[in-house]
C-alpha cells in the first residue's frame, strides 16, 4: 500500500522573507499510521501543515498526498482536493460558532461529494455516530458550537475531521487549550478513531507528554534542516 503522505526535498520560504522556513529531505506516512511530530512553537510546524493542506504554494514533486502531487494543483482544485483527502483540527476555534455540533461535523460533506459518499450517504447519522463515539453528550449535539466547552469543541472538530474517512488527518496542537487529563484522553480518542477510520494521523504538538501514545514520534528539529543548528 502506497504511503498516504510523502515529503520529498520540501523547501519553502515565505515570499520576501530573508530565509526559508521549511527544508525537509524526506518524510513518509503509511495508511492508518499515526505520527507524533514534536517541536516548540514558531519552528514552522504550522507552515508544514499549511503546505501539506495546499494552503501555501510549494513547488511540484515535493508533497504527495494520497498519491497526488499537491504542488501541481491550482486554486479551487486544491480546495477540493483538501476536503476530499484531508481532515484538519486546529488549536482552537475549530467550529462555526452559530452552527450546531452536528452541522459543524457535516460541513465537509456539504463541500465534497466524495466525503458525503464515504460517510454513507447520510452525513447526519454518521455525524451523530462520530460525536457519540467521541463521547459528546447527546444534549450537546444540537447545541450551537459556541455553547460547548473547549474540550467538547475539540471533540466536535475531531469528528468533523474524521467524517467521510479522509486518508489523512492533520492535527495542529489540538490539545494546547485542554487541561492535562483531557489532553491524554483526547489524544487517545483521536488516535483510536483514526485507526478505526483507517486514516493516517499527523499530530503536531510541543507537548512531550503525549509522545508515547503514538506509533511513531519525531522531533521537528531533526526533520527540518533550517532549524537544525
Amino acid at each position: 500500500m502506497s504511503p498516504v503522505l510523502v515529503l520529498d526535498n520540501l523547501s519553502f520560504g515565505w515570499p520576501g522573507a530573508p530565509r526559508g522556513v521549511l527544508d525537509i529531505r524526506s518524510l513518509s506516512l503509511a495508511a492508518g499510521e499515526n505520527l507524533f511530530l514534536r517541536g516548540p512553537s514558531g519552528c514552522g510546524k504550522s507552515t508544514l501543515l499549511s503546505a501539506i493542506a495546499g494552503m501555501v504554494n510549494v513547488g511540484p514533486g515535493q508533497i504527495r498526498v494520497a498519491g497526488v502531487d499537491v504542488g501541481m494543483l491550482k486554486g479551487g482544485a486544491r480546495d477540493r482536493f483538501r476536503v476530499e483527502h484531508i481532515g484538519m483540527i486546529f488549536q482552537v476555534f475549530n467550529l462555526v460558532p452559530w452552527m450546531s455540533a452536528l452541522d459543524n461535523v457535516q460541513l465537509p460533506c456539504r463541500f465534497s461529494a466524495a466525503r458525503r459518499a464515504r460517510a454513507g450517504g447520510d452525513p447526519g447519522a454518521e455525524a451523530h455516530r462520530l460525536l457519540s463515539a467521541l463521547h459528546l453528550p447527546e444534549a450537546a449535539h444540537r447545541a450551537p458550537a459556541r455553547t460547548l466547552s473547549i474540550g467538547q469543541q475539540q471533540r466536535v472538530a475531531a469528528a468533523r475531521a474524521l467524517i467521510g474517512a479522509p486518508e489523512l488527518i492533520l492535527a495542529d496542537e489540538p490539545t494546547s487549550a485542554l487541561d492535562e487529563d483531557a489532553k491524554a484522553a483526547f489524544a487517545d480518542l483521536l488516535a483510536a478513531e483514526c485507526a478505526a477510520a483507517g486514516a493516517a494521523l499527523l499530530f503536531v504538538s510541543h507537548d512531550r507528554g503525549l509522545e508515547g501514545r503514538f506509533d511513531r514520534a519525531l522531533d521537528f528539529r531533526d526533520l527540518n534542516r533550517w532549524i537544525a543548528p
Binding site: D79, P108, R110, S112
Partner: peptide
Amino acid sequence: RREFAILRSVGATPAR
C-alpha cells in the same frame, strides 16, 4: 474571519 477559515479548511474555495 475564523468562520471563513473554517469553511476553507473543509473545502470551500475563496470563490465560494
